[in-house]
Amino acid sequence: MRAFLFPGQGSQAVGMGADLAAASVHARAVFEEVDEALSQKLSRLMAEGPAEDLTLTENAQPAIMANALATLRVLEQEGGVRLADKAEFVAGHSLGEYSALCAAQALDLSTTARLLRLRGEAMQAAVPIGAGAMAALLGADFALAEAICADAAQGEVCQAANDNGGGQVVISGNKAAVERAMVLSKERGVKRAVLLAVSAPFHCALMQPAAEAMAKALAEADVRSPLVPVYANVTAAPAADPDVIRDLLVRQVTGTVRWRESVEAMWDAGVTDFVEFGAKVLGPMVKRIAPDANVVSIVTMNEIEALAAAL
């Protein structure tokens, strides 16, 4: 069994998608549709930068999605591969869940781009700059990270935001609370605590205004049953009902990205092969969680061609 995976924020880089667009009319069509949906030359920003503009949450989220979907589109159109024939499940990390839903045709491309633009804007606006923070705890399991967050909160928000597996848990919340958690983590044997260069504290209760904005937008969006089930971040379980998917996407804004559990659940369900589209971020995570899995990350035209031949 096979799952197609889609990366999250942090996988953006200036130049992303440029070579693929030059090589494939099908990739260019994806970028052009996203540009039109957003009334912005996002593809030019992706190709040329500047990096600080691409890194803005409102740009990074639709850009990462567009790059991943362009990669999949080339595989489908030029490699003759149909997702529904070659994958039993799809999954994505944070914003990547939207990419996964688009890949499985639960959302169309233009709608996905607009939802991610709104999501990025709403997440950025939810907390004043400098009021929140995120940090990666390296060498901590999820239970330890949760205990550290509970003790560090002291009436503020401090939550485990991403359970990435392999002993990496990202925490999020009020800046002072996250800083207290970093001090506590060293006292409790965590190997390293690294403050992340992010513009807002994602996946914690401080994001509630963004969750409300997404609830309104998703209520009005055309969400269909996906071609294959999507493993949801907040439940680490497959979902296929459109109303359930809407609810899970809203909960995801403030909830923990349960990536480790999602991969473990897919492995337990019989998935042995994982294919990541558009970046090489989730592949290494999957190998740390399921060392015996077959994992490939697809970015370039050569890699797409090799995968099409293998499938």
Rank of each mutant, 00 (worst) to 15 (best):
A113M: 08
Q105E: 14
V299C: 12
N164E: 10
L144C: 13
L144V: 11
A133L: 03
A3F: 12
V281F: 09
L195Y: 13
Q168M: 10
N59K: 04
E303L: 11
A293H: 07
V14W: 14
A210E: 07
L69D: 03
A126M: 06
T57H: 01
P209S: 12
L20A: 09
L118R: 08
A125D: 08
V194G: 13
G120W: 01
L115I: 11
A161M: 01
A293Q: 09
M65R: 07
E264H: 07
L137M: 07
L195K: 15
V157I: 14
I64Y: 01
A140Q: 09
A66M: 03
A106Y: 07
D163L: 03
P284R: 07
L137E: 01
K86H: 14
R82C: 10
L115V: 09
L95M: 10
L101A: 02
A143Y: 02
V74S: 00
R180P: 02
A177M: 00
A51Y: 08
N67V: 02
K41L: 14
L45V: 11
E33S: 15
D292S: 14
R82V: 00
L184F: 00
A63G: 06
S99F: 00
A22Y: 13
L69C: 05
E261I: 03
M1H: 15
V296H: 06
V34M: 10
K175S: 11
G132K: 01
K175N: 08
A125K: 09
A150R: 14
V157A: 07
A143S: 13
R44T: 15
K186F: 04
G96E: 05
E33P: 06
V25A: 15
L45P: 03
T55Y: 05
S99W: 07
E187S: 12
A63F: 02
V223P: 05
P291N: 12
A29C: 11
T256S: 06
F31G: 00
N174K: 05
R258S: 03
A106W: 09
S172C: 04
D241W: 08
R73A: 06
D292K: 14
S39C: 15
H203L: 13
V271M: 04
A213F: 05
R117Q: 09
V230M: 12
Q105R: 14
L115A: 08
